[in-house]
Amino acid sequence: MSDVHHSVFDSVHSDHVLTNEHSVAFTLKTRCRKCSLLTEQLPVGVSPEVHVTLGTERSEPDRLRQNSGLTVYLRDSRPNMADEATRRAVSQIPMLKTHAGPRDRALWPQRLKEEYQALIRFVEQNKAADNDWFRLESNADGTRWTGTCWFVHELLRYEFRLEFDIPVTYPDTAPEVAVPELDGKTAKMYRGGRICLTDHFAPLWARNAPRFGLAHLMALGLGPWLAVEVPDLIGKGLVVHKERPREAAE
C-alpha cells in the first residue's frame, strides 16, 4: 500500500498547484486495470480528496500529512516563481470569443481582431510590470506571424527572431512557434527551430480552445521555454551576446 501512495505523490511533485500559501489540494482517482475506467472509488481508508499542508522548511523535502492518516513526502511541493508569475500573467490575458480559423472567411477577420486585442493588452501589461519581452505582427490576412522576443540574463539582453504560421486547424490546435536561429543548438527543439513545449501545454490548450489565443501561446508556450532554455544555452556558450566577442565567452 505505501508503495502505491509513494508513486502517486512522486509523480506529481513538480506540478501541483497551491490553493493558498500553505496548503495544496488534489483529488485522487483510480483507474481500473481491467476496464481502464477512472472512478473516484478508492481502496478502503483512502479519501478521494486529499488536503496536505506544506512543511515550513523550504529546502527540506516537505513532510506532508493527508487526511487518511498516511504520511507522504514531496521533494519540493511549491511551484517556482516563474510558474506563479506565468499563471498570474495568463489570468490577466482576455479570453477570445470567436471560434474561427483562417479557412473561415466570414469569421476569421473577427477572430484576428480579438487576437490583436488580446496581444495588445498582454504587451501593455508586460510593459506595466516591467517585463516586456516580445513583439509580434502578422501579414495582412493574419496567417503568418513574425516578431522578436528577448530575454534578459545577467543584465544582458538576448534577442531572437520568432515566426510561425497559423495552421488550418487553428484555434483547435496551437501554432508551432519557431526560433530559427536556435535550431540545432538545443534538443528541446524539433526540426526548423520549432520549440518543444511541455507535456502540460497540449492538454491546457485543448481544454481552453477556442478561448486561448496567440497571447496565451506566448505566455504559456514561448515564455516558459525561453526561461528554461536561454540561460542553459548561454551557460553552454551556444548563445553569445551580440556585443560580446565570442572569445570572451569562452
Binding site: V4, V8, F9, H16, T19, A25, F26, C32, L42
Partner: peptide
Amino acid sequence: EWGIELVSEVT
C-alpha cells in the same frame, strides 16, 4: 486490481 493515479492537482 486498483492502481492509484493522480488526475488533477488544483482547487
